[in-house]
């Protein structure tokens, strides 16, 4: 059974069908990618999988459980964490606090815990701190813990998004254009980090623009165009697929 499965997933905004009957499987332990030209519906598919949108029809299955239309916080609790294409950090909070918030699903303290600070709560808070620090270390941001998230460079902000997602201890990590706006060197470092995360046993599903980045990294690649899946397979298969070439480069006029 696939870890995440999109089953004839469709969403319609007025007259526009942004995602049209897409079938897709993300296998456990693999790095799967979803690519396609601008406006193909990649991010929309992500938003459907994480509960930001409810599908018009079709299903999202996680470990066989139907999660379509469930609230994002519930889906995060099940073990799916994501990053955002248009970085959504908590800008006026510190790097460490950003990652601590990522631990939310895996901790419990409420208002009364906050006020009483019993020893169990203190212990939990120490664990959150330790987890947050480990997540920062993984992404190489541990020295910047005290900075405001807003003051980080663009590439660091993207890494912080991943660190925050990792702090929620997910089984499935969804990365929405993780390399957007990064230079070659930063991309190289990012590939290393993503491979490291995979070695930790996580399943990764990413949306990306950069073909080279995706082809070198992924086990499986699916291609969307105008909301429809036009190809699915290993990077080698997809690269020579005539429909994919047509979608990216246009058709040859005979």
């Amino acid at each position: 059974m696939a870890l995440l499965e999109l089953n004839k997933l469709t969403i319609q905004f007025g007259g526009l069908i942004a995602v049209n009957k897409v079938d897709l499987k993300v296998e456990k332990g693999q790095i799967s990618a979803l690519i396609g030209p601008n406006g193909a519906g990649k991010s929309t598919a992500f938003n459907l999988a994480t509960g930001i949108y409810s599908p018009t029809s079709g299903k999202v299955l996680y470990k066989g459980q139907d999660i379509s239309g469930k609230a994002p916080y519930y889906i995060n609790g099940l073990g799916i964490a994501r990053t955002f294409q248009n970085i959504r950090l908590f800008k006026e909070l510190t790097v460490l606090d950003n990652v601590k918030i990522g631990c939310h699903s895996r901790s419990k303290a409420g208002i009364f815990g906050a006020i009483t600070r019993l020893s169990a709560i203190k212990k939990e808070e120490r664990e959150i701190e330790e987890k947050a620090y480990q997540a920062l270390k993984l992404m190489g941001l541990e020295k910047k813990y005290d900075e405001f998230a807003d003051n980080l460079s663009y590439g660091e902000q993207r890494c912080l998004e991943i660190a925050r997602a990792m702090a929620s201890e997910p089984e499935l990590l969804l990365l929405d254009e993780p390399a957007a706006g990064m230079n070659l060197q930063e991309k190289g470092v990012l590939v290393e980090k993503i491979n490291k995360i995979r070695e930790m046993g996580l399943t990764i599903f990413l949306v990306e623009h950069d073909m080279k980045f995706v082809m070198g990294l992924s086990d499986r690649v699916a291609v969307l165009d105008y909301g429809v899946k036009i190809a699915d397979g290993t990077p080698e298969e997809v690269q020579v697929n005539a429909d994919v070439i047509a979608a990216y480069l246009g058709k040859e006029v005979v």
């Binding site: 994002p72 916080y73 995060n76 918030i101 419990k108 906050a114 939990e124």
Partner: peptide
Amino acid sequence: RVERSRFGRALLAIREDDIAAECYG
């Protein structure tokens, strides 16, 4: 105490970006 707790951080997260807050549980 509330400000420096899991509860308070969640409130700050809501102020900063409620969609991201929702996606982090």
